[in-house]
Each structure stands twice: as C-alpha cells, then as structure tokens.
Amino acid sequence: MSNTEKWKDINKSREKRPLVQVYKNWKELPPIPISFPIEGSIGSTGDWRIFRPIINQEGCNRCGICWMYCPEGTIKKKEDGSFDIDLQYCKGCGICAKECPTKNIEFKREDDLNGE
C-alpha cells in the first residue's frame, strides 16, 4: 500500500475523516504527528486552574466583552443573552475578569471555594 493511500483518511474533509485514528505500530503511523481540532483534544484543561472566574449575573449588562476576549472560547452565550463559563476547559487566566467593564466577574482561588 502506498503512503498516499495509507493517509487518505487525513485528507478527507472535516466531516468525513475519523476523529480518532488508532495505530497498532510505528509502521502504520503517518510521517508526522497531527491532530484534528475537536473540543477538548488536549484533555480537560480546567484542571490547570488556580483561580475561578464567577459571573455575577445580576450586575452583568451582557455586553459580551468577556465572551469576545476569552482566549480558549470557554465562555458560552446562552439563549436568554446571559453568559456561562465552561469550567471543564477554563484555565483560569483571568482575562475576562480583567476586561469586564462593570467589574462583575469575580476571580476566586479554587482552594477557598472548597470544591463548590
């Protein structure tokens, strides 16, 4: 089997190619390691977090600046216009808390929250 044929799966469009390829040994590997962009492809990065951002929904004016600034795309816009932070992937960088113009995102140490 030629290499071109062996790697035909990675050449397919986003919808058609397999999300995970399983290799039994080194001979089956493609020439370079690649990964396809899927949600959480590097694992639950929320584990890295020291500080947790907490949105004060009452004071929030729903401007969307935090949603725009989040480098990891973990702030989700809900149907009613409010915002929610996906704590499975939020690394706790604090950019949202820093950028919030109404100062309605609190930044708290995970240890102080006692696993709430």
Binding site: I10, N11, I32, I34, S35, F36
Partner: peptide, 9 residues
Amino acid sequence: PERPMMFGN
C-alpha cells in the same frame, strides 16, 4: 480551512 489540522504537536 476545509480540512483543518494541527501540527507541531
């Protein structure tokens, strides 16, 4: 963009 991939992992 139709076949996005990440390299240099």
